[in-house]
Write a protein that binds this DNA or RNA. Sequence first.
DNA 1: CTGAAAGCGCTTACAG
DNA 2: CTGAAAGCGCTTACAG
Lengths: 342, 342
Amino acid sequence: MKGKATSFDIAHRAGVSQSTVSRALRGSPLVSEETRRRIQQAADELKYKVDKNASNLRTRHSGTLALLLFEDPTADDSHINPFFLSMLGSITRACAQRGYDLLVSFQQLSNDWHADYADTRKADGIILLGYGDYLAYRDKLQMLVDQGTRFVRWGAVLPDQPDVSIGCDNFRGGQDVTRHLLEQGRRRIAFLGDASSHYPEFFERYRGYADVLEHAALPVEPQLQVNAESTEQSGYTAMETLLDRKAPFDAIFAASDLIAIGAIRALADRGLSIPGDVAVAGFDDIPTASFVNPPLTTVRQDTREAGEALVENLLRLIQGEPAESGMLPVKLVVRKSSLRSR
Amino acid sequence: MKGKATSFDIAHRAGVSQSTVSRALRGSPLVSEETRRRIQQAADELKYKVDKNASNLRTRHSGTLALLLFEDPTADDSHINPFFLSMLGSITRACAQRGYDLLVSFQQLSNDWHADYADTRKADGIILLGYGDYLAYRDKLQMLVDQGTRFVRWGAVLPDQPDVSIGCDNFRGGQDVTRHLLEQGRRRIAFLGDASSHYPEFFERYRGYADVLEHAALPVEPQLQVNAESTEQSGYTAMETLLDRKAPFDAIFAASDLIAIGAIRALADRGLSIPGDVAVAGFDDIPTASFVNPPLTTVRQDTREAGEALVENLLRLIQGEPAESGMLPVKLVVRKSSLRSR
DNA sequence: CTGAAAGCGCTTACAG
DNA sequence: CTGAAAGCGCTTACAG
């Protein structure tokens, strides 16, 4: 056998026309059972597989989705945000279940990702997953929409978005954490993480936090908020900044687990005990969260459900059906880092 | 503009033939600068992108590699072995650097993965990454080789393999850990992990361990070895089994960090202190390793280098050049879990 | 139920 | 340097 077998080879071997081979292998009801069996057998014998490039070219779709993962502070190789990695896992599975392949790619915000996979027909649609200045790439989203590219995005779900976005209930998560910390007797809760519309997910968490404080008639103090992006390093630095401000606080609500982990390190380096001196809570429930010392109270986002929802909605868009942005529930996971006494 | 522009549209707009458009866009030296510029401009204006399906069909290759990730004990969705996740990250990057796309897929050992991506021409080659009974899928590897499929595998590098495998120096890693534990005064070191040719990577680590013990004139005791696969749960169970045997030991060498983490939990549950009563060391240096309590001594595999090597060699195979199996160096990372005194 | 034929959008000898 | 033409391997109306 030289080269791969084609449908003509199968046709020849099964004594039918090439068109019939194609029909049989695609499961067309027009083919008789007997013929189908003969063709299937010939195909098996020659280890024939339909050439996807040819079939995609003909049918005008690829059976493939593209996942574009981007982080603003481009992580060194393998140190991708664990939460995204977990999403990647569930998205891959969700695709497989629906018979789609998944193309994975890392991008920088600055790149031309808005004009690639879908345009080259390598993918039928795109899933956007990442962390970066929302205002900076909002235009690109609009461009994608204008071009008619099918895509869904993981991120904050806001009223005025041009695209289909799936996200968790960040506001609610922020409320839950803050309420919990108050219940534990904390009164001066600091927030580590960006709190502006540049980073809507963090901002929603912050708004949930502020909302609960206000309802408890507690002040929302600007000096208790420090910007941080979602890395351990950034969390460490932010924690130091907060400590240097000398404003008293008895709890930290970090906008992500990575930030929380950095903060824990910084607190430990200054000799502060957790949760004795300071309670700490994060967001995401990454695998490491339960292993840090002390185990970290956090908010779990159901990545499995998230992956399903993203793929589900993207497929709907591809099929021309209506798809809607939606918010997934969150779940407070209480661990030692926020509990009153050991 | 209805539908996407094709090369004919560009040709029309630029006033040249379609063949010239194709040449210009592929960077053929046959096209004059002036013509190329005009074509490029027309392409930009129409936001034209070459249809990959068509071009792949013509050129007989896809510019895509497939990563097949499989775990024997199929992990629940997002809980993929963190080490593999890290590899996934570096492989994706290595592909991108070389202009290749990456198709990611989870597989079970039992599936027909040996006859898929490459056969359907969706990928030019395959990277195999996973954990499972080697003897069980060795036949499939042989089949891949026989079919002429281009693939490389991450795993143990053994003398008699039919395929190109890249792995770390597991034997050396096993030696390093064991030697370190001996230096810390430990004498009865247990090994948690499968130690048979079914799991060659673990087996190599075990052989390194046994080798050092023998050179130190210490016995290699079967009752100090307990099988375990690379999950926390399995590590926990294995640790319990070992404890129940009542054979004295003062150190644990776990074949992977996940196993080590499970073991640490089991030891803690029985009230044993680490490293006071028992020193513990793992293998892989997953992100969590530095966060467990106490921080885990382990062996780092350079995933960045590993991803590069895999992609590099696969590309070589695809280009018909010789590729060779190879072993990457490992690095002992000493942390608190194995140190004599606090 | 089956076959002959057109065509998906490219790339690349071949001829100028 | 450029164009006309063949062909990559399929799918799917169209005609029987």
